[in-house]
Design a protein around this nucleic acid. Structure first.
Lengths: 129, 129
DNA sequence: CTTGACCCTGACATGATGTCAAGGTTGATG
DNA sequence: CATCAACCTTGACATCATGTCAGGGTCAAG
């Protein structure tokens, strides 16, 4: 399967497929006589794994770890779970941080008349806080 | 006030103070005879504004807009409020996306025994989903 | 005069991704 | 056969906010 087809069936851009290869997430695929990359069903499966992991917010570095575990029959599920829970924790902290910003901002905005006058507690709040 | 002192009193790194100047968020400060930057109280106030806005998650581009409004006595509070609410919306969407990832991940992790065996619904879930 | 604590500029790195340029390949159509 | 569109190749530059490092000037205290 050519890279264009691989991209279409996995939703991963050609750019990123090549990138994953460069950084070692994807093994170098077979090449046709003309030099074109040729992807096996296994490669497509791996690509999908990466795409799904990205969709869960894992970094490429974390995905390297996950793929290592995926490939390793000697893995323990506790290793996998530890990675997953650590990432879930990370997501939780980041979401909470964004929510805190949002609440602070809405609190400032609450006092703002939002009309044609220049007085604005939002600007005041940012200036002094 | 030298840049080191400005950095200490605002919590903004010297690197970023210079960066804000380069990208036009901060006006070029006065220079001493030796070429050292010399910050006025007004500059320090502006720096604090930027730092606080960053703390609320505004991008430097959004802060450019906010500073423009701050500087402009002809502004209307509705303009400011629109920027703030748009950003709050953005924050809300991003937080929700992270939370969704977290829930999906925790759901997968729930089925994982987390012991010494290799079977793991987390990896399975990432592989197929 | 030396030493340490400042300051200056410029450059490279991060992470994940887009985009563009310049070129080779292939298949179809005139 | 010539050509054109649709592929593929590699390499490079851009994004955004920030860190860090190199190589050099300045200044005050000992």
């Amino acid at each position: 399967m050519n890279i264009g087809q691989a991209s279409k069936t996995t939703g991963v851009s050609e750019r990123m497929i090549r990138h994953y290869e460069r950084v070692g997430l994807m093994p170098p695929p077979d090449r046709r006589d003309n030099g074109y990359r040729d992807y096996s069903p296994q490669s497509i499966e791996r690509l999908r794994f990466i795409a799904n992991a990205r969709g869960l917010g894992f970094s490429l570095e974390e995905i390297t770890t996950l793929l290592g575990l995926w490939d390793n029959r000697e893995r323990t599920s506790s290793e996998v779970k530890a990675v997953a829970l650590a990432h879930a924790d990370d997501l939780g902290r980041k979401a909470a941080a964004l929510e805190a910003m949002r609440r602070a901002l809405l609190e400032l905005a609450e006092g703002c008349s939002g009309d044609s006058r220049p007085d604005c507690p939002i600007l005041d709040g940012i200036a002094v806080s």
